[in-house]
Design a protein around this nucleic acid. Structure first.
Lengths: 354, 354
DNA sequence: CCCATTGCTGTAAACGTTTACCGCGTGGGC
DNA sequence: GCCCACGCGGTAAACGTTTACAGCAATGGG
């Protein structure tokens, strides 16, 4: 376990200065003979560049952090799956933070950017507080936010359009003849929760359907709690004929409860999930789900960050990824592979920066 | 974007030397007055310690890498979910590598330990080659391997016991009266593939069942390919009455194909998966699956690594996590929550180190 | 009253790189 | 034959910390 070789060791063995060693290792113009000697010495010693010393001098770590709310949530995993290869291809390592959607933890991550152990950050907060915005303004490294952030925030921003997504789903249910469409939502003080709740209300209004409080239940974004909310709803409105769930986990909970209650899906109750995770395809009946483009958002975020890391300054950008409705058996009634009701192409526009 | 403050900036503002600043920040004994001045200056400047410089001097990065074969595989995710909080609690950051089970990538990761950007590594290779062992012997930081590694390897090792796992499943199927039990395996040159294949053969022998080549099909560890393998098997042995699948993804593929072929599960064919991932509980019928304790293995690996990082030298340890059979509808025929056929407690023993 | 001890603090070196700058030797132009 | 330019390579500083060591003031004991 003797200390590994450094450029000094190599310099001694090759009989040159450490500057020459560094130059050779970095491919700077050097006499052929010197290159040969240095390479030989490096090989013999099994030299590997010390990344820490390198970072200290160059002020670049070649690391990027991804702060996800919840390692267990497949939607974030889909992002991670796309982010990882993009960063890797560009020579960056990925540092993973799990914040459990706790604001203090997210603030911590933003604060820790000051430690300069990463060159940039991709973050996907469930709520965006005043404190978030303050820390963002003061952040010591570029940040890309996945999720909506107020106009004028100086950070690149990748958005889903859950409003349109909910709209696609409700329209679909309406087209199938459903008229008593319930909604199982997550907490209203989260960005997605609020957006999805509002979109549901709006979509009903546009279709001329009444908004009925009893048809809306709130839980968290998980399976068990989602199921509980469904049970409550069934209790109040036994003849509900469709359920719009704010994510797939909630929808799985809904399937559990409906099955236990003897309701047939989709004959009696049609169920739509959201996020189009792997679970949607795996469940039975397979779940119709609104894809909010998690994978695309992850990819876009990684690309935005890389662009900023390489390109330097430019105005913050907002990328909005359009939703797609993936129809499966839980609404359409056939066990087929599923049809995609696509939407417009990806939109991208520049923010008028402050 | 002026350069952030350093201890030098603080020292000037507080009118003390950088040594004093460092001492205060590290809580070393210092006069009260000095502490006050330094703290005040640090607060006003919004100082944050530079992790890179710190690491260079202290030779500790407080980062640990986890190299997973496949970010998409829920079994590895289960590990990740457990590893993350353990490391976080101990003050370590997590660097995530995805190797796609490509040997060259895994070797790369081991090699990159020489860059000293992490203090240790948890790795879960699908295959363990000669090259792996060589690199392990030469590794410049502690490594914990999840998966089996030859006796005498100088690395901590966390093992699943898929042999016993397969045994539990086959015994279960036998007890249900199944006699034509097929096996859908992954590649035989992977550690799990080889172990599971051998265990299947052994279990049949012990039960006095004949080993029939036509009942064994090989694909990869994914859903589509798993399905293809099942279709092939159905073609040759139409009256197969049970399928042991080498992981849950394959089992989902099996469900797809059986459904398409008009076979009832479990009435006509019972299906068992492996790894007991989230997908198993989400599918329909819910999948009986052998849990190999992914979560426990991840946790154990993280703890072993931390122990070594903190404790220094000791003999390499081998931890074996026992399997559990989680019975669900795909074999038992009821849609209940599932029973657990447990096994012995976790076993742990020391390796006779070289 | 002087010296030894104690308690703080400052100076400087070190961690392993990268890179600005300078000096040396060679070759070519005049 | 002299001078300049050019190509290489070496010296040293810098990145932002931590820490060994030494120095200095105050205190207490003999």
């Amino acid at each position: 376990m003797a200390d590994g070789p450094t450029i000094t060791t190599i310099a001694e063995r090759a009989g040159v200065s450490i500057a020459s060693v560094s130059r050779v290792l970095n491919g700077l113009p050097t006499r052929q003979e010197t290159v040969r000697k240095v390479m030989a010495a490096a090989d013999e010693l099994g030299y590997v560049r010390n990344a820490v010393a390198r970072s200290l001098k160059s002020r670049r770590t070649h690391q990027v952090a991804f702060a996800m709310a919840d390692v267990g949530n497949p939607a974030y995993l889909a992002m991670l799956r796309e982010i990882q290869p993009v960063l890797k291809a560009a020579g960056y390592r990925l540092v993973l933070h799990s914040t459990d959607a706790v604001v203090a933890d997210e603030i911590d991550v933003l604060h820790s950017l000051g430690e300069r152990y990463v060159d940039g950050l991709i973050m996907s907060p469930l709520r965006v507080t005043e404190q978030h915005l303050e820390m963002l303004a003061a952040a010591r490294a570029p940040v890309v936010i996945i999720g909506s952030v107020p106009e004028g925030t100086r950070a690149d921003n990748v958005r889903a359009d859950s409003r349109t997504g909910v709209r696609l789903a409700i329209d679909h249910l309406y087209a199938l003849g459903r008229r008593r469409i319930g909604m199982i939502n997550g907490p209203l003080d989260t960005v997605p929760g609020a957006a999805r709740g509002a979109a549901y209300r709006e979509a009903l209004a546009d279709l001329g359907l009444p908004y009925d409080e009893d048809l809306v239940r709130i839980g968290d974004f998980y399976r068990a709690e989602g199921g509980r909310a469904v049970a409550e709803l069934l209790d109040r409105v036994p003849d509900v004929d469709a359920l719009m769930c704010a994510n797939d986990l909630i929808a799985l909970g809904a399937l559990d409860v409906l099955r236990a209650a003897g309701k047939r899906v989709p004959a009696d109750v049609a169920v739509v999930g959201m996020d189009d995770t792997d679970l949607a395809a795996a469940s039975w009946p397979a779940l119709t789900s609104v894809s909010l483009g998690s994978a695309e958002r992850g990819k876009a975020a990684a690309e935005l960050l890389l662009d900023r890391l390489q390109g330097g300054d430019r105005e913050p950008r907002v990328v909005t990824v359009p939703p797609r409705l993936v129809v499966r058996a839980s609404t359409a009634g056939t066990a087929g592979a599923g049809t995609v009701h696509d939407d417009a192409g990806r939109t991208e526009r520049k923010e008028g920066g402050a």
